[in-house]
Design a protein around this nucleic acid. Structure first.
Length: 505
RNA sequence: GCCGCGUUGGUCAAGGGGUUAAGACGCCUCCCUUUCACGGAGGAAUCACGGGUUCGAAUCCCGUACGUGGUACCA
C-alpha cells in the first residue's frame, strides 16, 4: 500500500460543529496511526454560502484540538493549492474530458425550465423528480441538441452546466470500511451537475478530482454523503482512475436530543455545539463553543472520539497519543450517536483531575484575572489548583473554588448562618480572633488546635461554628477544609474575614 | 413518495448462536467527609415488533414499525 494520505475537507460556511471536528479527528487518527499524512483542503466553491472568516476559524479550532495538518492552505505542501477555488481550471478540463468520452453532457436548461420540468413531473407519489435518464431526453442538452446547435450555444457563451450521464441499468457497489458492502441501482441516481454555470465544480467533481490529484488513499466523511457515493464511484471509473480510488468510510451522524444535532440545539438545551465560539457575520448570531464554555481540548477530543468509537475495552479516557495507538476504523459504529452533554462534562471533569498543575495553570490564571482577581503569589496558585481541581467540572468553576484564596468573598451566604446565629457565637469568634492573633507560627495545626480548645471550653458543638467560619472565609457552603483555607490566606486576612462576617450576620 | 443507512437500559456502549446481557454517564441509597466535592459500596433500568432457521436467537434470515440521511447549478 502506498503511503496513507487522508484529508479533511471543510467548507467555510461558518461554525465547526461536533460532527465536523469528529470527522477531522478520525481522519487525523487514522493517518497518524498508519504513519501517514493528514491533509486539510478547503471546499470554497460555493460562493453564495461562503462566510468571511470561517476558514481561519476552522484552522483555529483544529489547532486548539491539537489536530495539526501536514498539508494545508496555510502550511502548503506538494499538492498545492489546497483551496478548491484556486484549482478551478483543472475541474473544467476533467468535465470536458468526460463529455468528450460520452460520460457527461452539456445542459443548457435555464432555472425556469428546470422548475417547469419538476413541476410537470411532480406527483403525490414523487414530490421531487430528478434530472435523470428518464427526463434527460426531453431537456435542452447536448444529448438532444445537434452538434452544431451545441457548438453554437457554446461559442455564444450560453450559460450551461455539465452533468454526469448515469448509466441506465447498472448495479454499482463498493465496500465501506465501516459498513461493509453497499450497493446502488444507477437508474435511481440522477444526472448530478458536475460543473456549475459559474465554472466552479460541484462537490462531486471536486472531491474526485482533488482526491486523485492529492493522492488520497482513504476517504472518510459523514454518513450524509453515502447517497452520493455512486456518483463518485462512477466518476473514478469514467476518469479512468478506478485503480487509484481511495477506500471509503462513512462516519455515523452525531444526533441532538431531538433528531440530528443542529446549532440551535445549543441555545435550546444549553450546551455548546461548535468547537469554539462562532459569530455569524451576517446575522450576528453567536453559537457557543466548547473552548469558551471551559472545556479542555484533551477532554473535547476524548469525548468526540468515543462518541461512535471504542476499542472494545472498558477504557474511556484516552490522550491523543493513546487514541492514535488504539484507533481503528473497523471499530467505528454504524449507528448515529446521540450527544449527551452530561457525559461530556464528565469527561472534562476527569481531564481536569488528570492533568497536572502545569497544564492547568495558564487557563486558571486567565480565568481568575478575568474575574478581577490579581495573582501575586504564584506558588500559592499552584497549591490551590491542586487542592480544588477535584471539584471543578468546567474550567470557570475554578473562579468559584479558587477565587476566595486570593480575594475576600464579596457576598456571603448569610441565610445559611443567620437563623442560628446568636450572642454565644459572636463571643466565640471574638475570642477566637484574639487567639489567632497570638499564634506565632501560622499553620494549619495551630489554627485548628486553637479552635478545638476554645470549642471545648465554651462547650459548643464544633459543627455549629464550623459552618459560620466557612461562610466567613469562602462565602458559601463549599470548598476545602476551613482551616486549610485559613492557613493559606494568612492571619490578617482570616481575622479580617471573620470580623467582616460577624458584621453581616 | 423513492433510495441509502441504522435500531442492546434515559444516554454512550461491550457482546455477534448457549452469558446471572460487561462497563461508563445520569438517577437513587448507604459509607467516608463537622461544608461542597473526590473516593468507596450497593440499587433501579435494556436486546423495537412479528415471523422464520435452530435442540437453543440479543446474536443468522425475511418482513413491519420507527429513526436518520439523501432526493439542489449546498457541501
Amino acid at each position: 500500500m502506498s503511503k496513507v494520505r487522508v484529508r479533511f475537507a471543510p467548507s467555510p460556511t461558518g461554525g465547526l460543529h461536533l460532527g465536523g471536528v469528529r470527522t477531522a479527528l478520525f481522519n487525523y487518527l487514522f493517518a497518524k496511526k498508519h504513519g501517514g499524512d493528514f491533509i486539510v483542503r478547503i471546499e470554497d466553491t460555493d460562493q453564495a454560502r461562503f462566510v468571511e472568516g470561517a476558514e481561519q476559524y476552522i484552522f483555529d479550532c483544529l489547532q486548539w484540538c491539537g489536530i495539526e495538518p501536514d498539508e494545508s492552505p496555510v502550511k502548503g505542501g506538494p499538492h498545492a493549492p489546497y483551496r478548491q477555488s484556486e484549482r478551478k481550471e483543472s475541474y473544467r478540463k476533467y468535465a470536458e474530458e468526460l463529455v468528450n468520452n460520452g460520460f457527461a453532457y452539456y445542459a443548457f436548461d435555464t432555472k425556469e425550465e428546470l422548475e417547469k420540468m419538476r413541476e410537470e413531473n411532480k406527483t403525490a407519489l414523487n414530490p421531487s423528480p430528478q434530472y435523470d435518464h428518464t427526463v434527460r431526453k426531453k431537456m435542452k442538452n447536448s444529448l438532444t441538441l445537434t452538434d452544431a446547435e451545441v457548438k453554437d450555444l457554446l461559442t455564444k457563451n450560453t450559460a450551461h452546466v455539465i452533468r454526469i450521464k448515469m448509466p441506465e441499468n447498472e448495479l454499482i457497489s463498493f465496500t465501506d470500511m465501516i459498513r461493509g458492502e453497499i450497493s446502488f441501482e444507477t437508474s435511481l441516481v440522477d444526472d448530478k451537475v458536475l460543473l456549475k454555470a459559474d465554472g466552479m465544480p460541484t462537490y462531486h467533481l471536486a472531491v474526485v478530482a482533488d482526491d486523485h490529484a492529492m493522492e488520497i488513499t482513504h476517504a472518510f466523511r459523514g454518513e450524509e454523503w453515502l447517497p452520493s457515493a455512486p456518483v463518485h464511484l462512477m466518476l473514478w471509473k469514467y476518469l479512468g482512475w478506478e485503480k487509484e480510488m481511495p477506500e471509503w468510510a462513512h462516519l455515523p451522524l452525531i444526533l441532538g436530543p431531538n433528531g440530528k444535532l443542529s446549532k440551535r440545539d445549543g441555545a435550546k438545551y444549553g450546551f455548546p455545539v461548535f468547537a469554539m465560539n462562532w459569530t455569524d457575520p451576517k446575522t450576528n448570531e453567536l453559537t457557543a463553543g466548547f473552548k469558551e464554555k471551559g472545556f479542555l481540548p484533551e477532554a473535547f477530543i476524548n469525548l468526540l472520539a468515543v462518541l461512535g468509537w471504542n476499542d472494545g475495552t472498558a477504557q474511556e479516557l484516552y490522550s491523543m497519543n493513546e487514541l492514535i495507538a488504539n484507533f481503528s476504523m473497523e471499530r467505528i459504529h454504524v449507528a448515529g450517536a446521540k450527544f449527551d452533554y452530561e457525559k461530556a462534562k464528565w469527561f472534562n471533569h476527569e481531564w481536569i483531575k488528570k492533568l497536572n498543575v502545569e497544564s492547568l495553570r495558564f487557563n486558571v490564571k486567565a480565568l481568575l484575572q478575568a474575574d478581577g482577581i490579581k495573582i501575586l503569589d504564584e506558588p500559592l496558585l499552584d497549591n490551590v489548583i491542586e487542592l480544588v481541581k477535584d471539584r471543578c467540572t468546567l474550567l470557570p468553576d475554578f473562579v468559584q473554588h479558587a477565587g476566595f484564596f486570593f480575594k475576600t468573598p464579596e457576598v456571603l451566604d448569610i441565610e445559611a448562618v443567620k437563623p442560628k446565629w446568636n450572642g454565644e457565637k459572636v463571643k466565640f469568634f471574638e475570642e477566637y480572633c484574639l487567639l489567632l492573633e497570638g499564634i506565632g507560627n501560622w499553620e494549619l495545626a495551630e489554627i485548628e488546635h486553637n479552635f478545638n480548645t476554645l470549642v471545648a471550653v465554651k462547650n459548643i458543638k464544633p459543627g455549629e461554628l464550623l459552618l459560620p467560619l466557612r461562610i466567613m472565609l469562602v462565602g458559601g457552603k463549599f470548598g476545602p477544609a476551613a482551616f486549610q483555607i485559613a492557613a493559606w490566606i494568612g492571619m490578617d486576612e482570616t481575622i479580617k474575614r471573620i470580623k467582616n462576617g460577624m458584621a453581616q450576620f
